[in-house]
Computed example of a mutant assay.
Amino acid sequence: MTKRLPEDPAKKARMLTAAIQLFAEQGYEPTHVDQIAQQAAVSKGLVFKYFTNKEQLYLAALTAANQQFMTVIDRTVWQNSADLSAMIINATRYKIQLQLQFPAEFNLLMTAFVHQQQLPASSQAYVQKMFVANHDLTSELMTPVVALLQFKPGATAADLLEVIGYITNGYIHKIQRYLAAHPEITKIEQMEPLIQDLATKLKLVESGFIQG
């Protein structure tokens, strides 16, 4: 019986880094394993030895990108905010900072969300699971601040969270389009006009939900 050689962590890390970058830049279908192997400075056969096929490599890249954000996320950005608007603005600034720090990982995950119907079944299932987990995490992070609010009759915390979700998700896509059109942006301060526009919209929502 042939003894299986142990994996080389450095080579595997290079494969995942190359996969994240190329899948983020080109998408799933246009990206070839040969390109990933070349960028990682390994053989195509070694890529298949570690990940079996392209579908498994893409799933591994998604998982690694998501775990990167889960590892570094700072919950105090949400929970130490003074009020609802401050919490959303602080969180938005923080997400942009993370995107600028980890552009390939962020772009890969965003592309997977937008084009999930074009992905293999295993990746579609992972994206759905990740979407639910991220939604639950966001609700958990917002709960301490939302619990302090006083609502007008007929309005509830669930209503507020749903509307805030619509607005922030829309702005995340707006921010992605802006960053894609302005690759020269490297600092959060350069995004301040969009952030202040979001703050204005949140104040309008807040006045409709919360007792003054």
Rank of each mutant, 00 (worst) to 15 (best):
Q124K: 06
M70S: 06
K187C: 09
L84R: 12
L62A: 09
V127Y: 05
Q79C: 09
L57N: 02
M191A: 12
H135A: 12
A158P: 00
Y58N: 06
T63C: 09
I195Y: 00
S85W: 00
M87P: 01
E189C: 00
L149V: 02
I20H: 08
Y171H: 09
A10R: 11
Q68D: 12
F151C: 07
Q117I: 03
A10F: 07
A41T: 11
E189W: 00
F102K: 05
D74C: 01
L109R: 10
E7D: 11
V132Y: 12
V72T: 15
G165R: 03
M110A: 15
D136T: 12
F48E: 04
M87V: 05
I188N: 05
P153Q: 12
A61V: 01
L148A: 13
A86K: 10
T143M: 14
D74V: 07
S81L: 02
A64L: 09
V163G: 04
D8A: 07
I88Y: 03
S123T: 07
D83F: 13
I89Y: 04
K3G: 04
V47H: 05
P144S: 09
K203I: 02
G27V: 12
F69A: 08
V146Y: 04
A181P: 01
A24F: 04
I167C: 07
A13R: 03
L161E: 12
A13S: 05
L137D: 08
T2S: 11
L119Y: 09
L84V: 06
V146W: 03
L22R: 11
E55D: 10
Y166E: 00
T71S: 14
P183G: 12
H135K: 10
V47W: 03
A121S: 11
S81R: 01
D34N: 13
N90H: 12
I210K: 04
L109M: 13
T63W: 07
A155R: 15
L148K: 15
M1R: 11
I167W: 04
K54E: 07
A24K: 04
I185V: 15
Q117C: 01
P193G: 04
L161H: 02
Q101C: 08
V205N: 02
V146G: 03
E105S: 06
I73P: 00
K187R: 14
A13G: 01
E162M: 06
S122L: 15
Q116N: 07
R14L: 13
F113E: 10
G170A: 07
A18R: 05
K44N: 10
V33R: 03
N90G: 10
L62F: 11
L137Q: 13
L198Y: 05
A158F: 01
K54D: 06
W78E: 05
A19P: 14
N53G: 12
L198P: 04
S139R: 13
M130L: 08
V205G: 01
